[in-house]
Design a protein around this nucleic acid. Sequence first.
DNA 1: CCATATCCCGGGAACGGTCTCGAAAATTTT
DNA 2: AAAATTTTCGAGACCGTTCCCGGGATATGG
Lengths: 341, 341
Amino acid sequence: MEKKLVTIKDIAKTLGISKSTVSRALCGRTDIHPDTKKKIIELARSLNYEPNALAINLKQQRTNTIGVIIPETVNGFFARATGGIQKRADMAGMNVMICQSDESYIIEKKNIHSLMSGRVDGVIISVSHETDQSEHFAALQQKGIPMVFFDRISEDLETSQIITNNHEIAFEGTNHLISQGCKRIAYVAGPHHLNNSKNRLHGYLDALKQHNIEVQDSYIIHSSYKSDKVEEYTRYLLNLPQRPDAVFAINDFAAVEMMHILKKSGLRIPDDIAILGFNNENISRFVEPSLSSIDHPAYDIGMAAAEVLINQIRHPELKPEKRIVKSKLIIRESTQKQPQL
Amino acid sequence: MEKKLVTIKDIAKTLGISKSTVSRALCGRTDIHPDTKKKIIELARSLNYEPNALAINLKQQRTNTIGVIIPETVNGFFARATGGIQKRADMAGMNVMICQSDESYIIEKKNIHSLMSGRVDGVIISVSHETDQSEHFAALQQKGIPMVFFDRISEDLETSQIITNNHEIAFEGTNHLISQGCKRIAYVAGPHHLNNSKNRLHGYLDALKQHNIEVQDSYIIHSSYKSDKVEEYTRYLLNLPQRPDAVFAINDFAAVEMMHILKKSGLRIPDDIAILGFNNENISRFVEPSLSSIDHPAYDIGMAAAEVLINQIRHPELKPEKRIVKSKLIIRESTQKQPQL
DNA sequence: CCATATCCCGGGAACGGTCTCGAAAATTTT
DNA sequence: AAAATTTTCGAGACCGTTCCCGGGATATGG
């Protein structure tokens, strides 16, 4: 136990050669005799030599790793997105370091510093729900560390970003509800300051406007993404003088829980009240009635984010790049009032 | 852009003092004059100095980070567990580096090497579903890097581990099904070589034996954890000459999907066939009928794993520690044949 | 056979910190 | 006021690599 790890110097000493030569052999240079190279590699293998990434990175002035800051991994969307990031990074031979902000601005800030300190080559971020400023991001940018935002972006900064057609898809979703005959459509939105909830909200509002449906402020709920309030605002909606006949929810978890409460209250879905979710989680197919939702291509978004970042790392002269990934409306039972013909 | 990051030497030079002094000020030593210290700290702050963790770690011969290897973050259990790990590590001022094996032995091995290379102070592992050997773990151990297994452990090695009362809880779950009058209980198990599926399987078998119910091999399915085969084996069970009257499933996702298929086939749950899941995912409360499950305290398991590992790191002389965290049977509608009185 | 190019290899400076040691300066003791 | 002690600081080794540079050995060319 507690053995000192074997270093390049140990190998050099036992072989009676210089550490430069050992280094040459181990990182695959050509200016070394095949025989010595073979000897070195064999010894290294037998000693179970593991290169010290700290030393290498210190010397190289880059770590070959990209930092990721996401609100939380328990959220299926972010879990799938990091999956995509990891896949793409792996293809490029890069490592990934994941931090969770836990939807907290303070922790997000700490994460930034810890990634800077770890000298990651670039950062991918989806900002915490609490965050409404951007100095900590600016600090990163100022140090010349490339960064890419996805899904939840910080609009104050001129950086690369991967977003979806939020406005359009919320517009489309709302239109779908209207086409089903819904007139009193409640909307569970995210926090005001986040771009994606803002854009989605406008999509919703514009759809209403297009159909000359008056906007009811009491139908719009600004909720946290950490949905521990679902029951509360569901009861609120139920007790409104004019009960909504549809709800467009912030995500599928909220939608499913809401459906559960509504059903227990004796309401029929979608006939009494239609429900449309967001994110198209796995479960949505299996609940009853099956939940209509917006398919948010998390994995692809992650892949795109990593791809853009890696480009940025390799070609620092590139201008920030914005990509838009398309979300898709998935219609299931929870919003389909009339049976299909 | 592309600015060189500010170092301790830069600060020393502009202040006309030695880097030793700067270092002293920045890492909070006492043998330095308050005035110089103040000057240094102010300059550092104004320059946005960020210590280079690589250099520090290289010198200190420890990184203050613990590595984590889990099969996949999209799995709610592991996502919650890493949440617990991160929480506990944070309390101890340590960082966490998460790797996903994607249930692949090859990737798991690569992860191990990348963590060794990164010189993490210790590793927490839940082995991939594919893994049936342990040399790669042994390599870690041999280098004196403490490790803790959780949930899915490698039995070949003498290491710390956090497990649950698998045998007992599977026994209890099966008993519960029997108490509901089920006699033909199918069991969807994990791979043979994983300790937890093995122990659970024995719990199931022992429960049957205790009630003199003959074991039917055709009722036992060894499935992957990556459940893309649910439909396939559900059909298989449905087509057996003697259809089972209960299924004890490997996890809630499989259970929920299975329920969905069974319902579409016109079977009533739990009357025609009872379903018991594993892991008590969020959704289980919301499906219809609500799913009985085994509550597997992921967060606590993660906390425990981190705690044991940190102990081990700080006191290398300690013997490996085994902790058992209790799972709990949660009875809902999917297994409750007779209405409650 | 000598000049030149090529091939291998060792020495040693970096990378950015920490830390030990000893010395200068300031303070206290006698 | 000299001695002893304490405070404060600088020089430089070190962590494990990479890489530049130069030199000796070997091969190539005329």
